[in-house]
Deep mutational scan, measured.
Amino acid sequence: VTVHVNRYTYHFDNPEEAEKFAREMAKRLNMTVEIHGNTLKVE
């Protein structure tokens, strides 16, 4: 599972951890999480 935050890319083996990380980053940056299959984008 890949998480994109701005120009950074993070890889996770565990989808739940990836989503938790993405949501935490989105909250911190006041952004939203978009899910595209195995890719989560924080925008």
Rank of each mutant, 00 (worst) to 15 (best):
residue 39 T to Q: 12
residue 42 V to S: 04
residue 36 H to A: 08
residue 12 F to N: 00
residue 23 R to I: 10
residue 24 E to F: 09
residue 31 M to W: 05
residue 30 N to H: 12
residue 39 T to H: 13
residue 1 V to N: 03
residue 41 K to Q: 09
residue 14 N to V: 08
residue 19 E to S: 06
residue 32 T to K: 13
residue 36 H to E: 10
residue 9 T to V: 14
residue 43 E to G: 15
residue 17 E to C: 12
residue 21 F to R: 00
residue 4 H to M: 12
residue 29 L to E: 04
residue 8 Y to N: 12
residue 15 P to E: 08
residue 7 R to A: 12
residue 35 I to N: 05
residue 10 Y to I: 06
residue 32 T to P: 04
residue 27 K to H: 10
residue 41 K to H: 15
residue 9 T to F: 11
residue 43 E to L: 15
residue 15 P to F: 15
residue 21 F to G: 00
residue 3 V to A: 01
residue 11 H to T: 09
residue 25 M to Q: 05
residue 41 K to F: 15
residue 37 G to N: 06
residue 35 I to Q: 09
residue 39 T to A: 10
residue 31 M to T: 13
residue 8 Y to L: 13
residue 19 E to P: 00
residue 17 E to S: 08
residue 37 G to H: 05
residue 14 N to M: 06
residue 42 V to W: 03
residue 34 E to F: 13
residue 37 G to E: 07
residue 40 L to Y: 06
residue 21 F to V: 02
residue 18 A to W: 02
residue 29 L to V: 03
residue 21 F to Y: 03
residue 9 T to I: 15
residue 16 E to K: 11
residue 42 V to R: 02
residue 1 V to I: 12
residue 19 E to N: 07
residue 42 V to I: 09
residue 31 M to Y: 06
residue 23 R to N: 12
residue 31 M to F: 06
residue 24 E to W: 12
residue 41 K to D: 07
residue 43 E to S: 14
residue 36 H to K: 10
residue 5 V to T: 03
residue 9 T to D: 06
residue 32 T to C: 11
residue 29 L to W: 07
residue 32 T to L: 08
residue 7 R to W: 11
residue 17 E to L: 11
residue 28 R to P: 01
residue 9 T to G: 04
residue 28 R to S: 07
residue 20 K to Q: 11
residue 29 L to F: 12
residue 3 V to D: 01
residue 38 N to K: 06
residue 31 M to N: 03
residue 36 H to Y: 11
residue 18 A to G: 11
residue 6 N to K: 08
residue 1 V to C: 14
residue 11 H to S: 05
residue 39 T to M: 13
residue 2 T to A: 05
residue 7 R to K: 13
residue 27 K to W: 04
residue 27 K to Q: 11
residue 3 V to Q: 01
residue 16 E to R: 08
residue 43 E to M: 15
residue 35 I to P: 03
residue 19 E to Y: 15
residue 31 M to Q: 04
residue 34 E to N: 14
residue 19 E to T: 07
residue 25 M to K: 02
residue 11 H to M: 07
residue 23 R to Y: 14
residue 29 L to Q: 04
residue 18 A to M: 01
residue 36 H to L: 11
residue 30 N to Y: 03
residue 8 Y to P: 01
residue 18 A to N: 00
residue 39 T to P: 03
residue 30 N to V: 03
residue 10 Y to F: 13
residue 17 E to G: 03
residue 7 R to L: 09
residue 43 E to R: 14
residue 4 H to T: 12
residue 10 Y to Q: 02
residue 33 V to S: 01
residue 41 K to P: 05
residue 31 M to D: 02
residue 1 V to Y: 15
residue 40 L to N: 05
residue 37 G to K: 07
residue 32 T to D: 05
residue 11 H to R: 03
residue 36 H to C: 14
residue 11 H to F: 13
residue 18 A to I: 01
residue 3 V to M: 01
residue 11 H to G: 02
residue 30 N to P: 01
residue 23 R to S: 08
residue 22 A to C: 06
residue 24 E to D: 11
residue 43 E to N: 12
residue 19 E to R: 07
residue 34 E to H: 15
residue 33 V to P: 02
residue 10 Y to H: 04
residue 16 E to T: 10
residue 41 K to L: 14
residue 10 Y to K: 04
residue 12 F to E: 00
residue 33 V to C: 02
residue 18 A to V: 01
residue 10 Y to R: 03
residue 17 E to N: 06
residue 20 K to G: 06
residue 42 V to E: 05
residue 13 D to F: 07
residue 32 T to M: 09
residue 27 K to N: 10
residue 25 M to D: 00
residue 4 H to Q: 12
residue 28 R to N: 08
residue 39 T to C: 15
residue 5 V to N: 03
residue 13 D to K: 08
residue 38 N to G: 08
residue 9 T to R: 09
residue 17 E to K: 07
residue 12 F to Y: 02
residue 40 L to D: 05
residue 29 L to G: 06
residue 31 M to A: 14
residue 28 R to W: 09
residue 23 R to D: 07
residue 31 M to I: 07
residue 25 M to H: 03
residue 20 K to F: 09
residue 28 R to F: 08
residue 13 D to H: 07
residue 15 P to T: 10
residue 31 M to K: 04
residue 10 Y to W: 10
residue 2 T to V: 12
residue 12 F to P: 00
residue 14 N to S: 11
residue 22 A to R: 01
residue 6 N to S: 10
residue 36 H to D: 12
residue 35 I to V: 13
residue 10 Y to D: 01
residue 25 M to T: 08
residue 22 A to G: 02
residue 5 V to A: 03
residue 23 R to P: 00
residue 18 A to S: 01
residue 27 K to C: 14
residue 38 N to C: 12
residue 42 V to H: 04
residue 7 R to N: 15
residue 13 D to W: 09
residue 35 I to E: 03
residue 34 E to G: 07
residue 27 K to I: 10
residue 7 R to I: 09
residue 2 T to Q: 08
residue 5 V to G: 03
residue 7 R to G: 15
residue 14 N to G: 06
residue 25 M to L: 13
residue 13 D to S: 10
residue 8 Y to D: 13
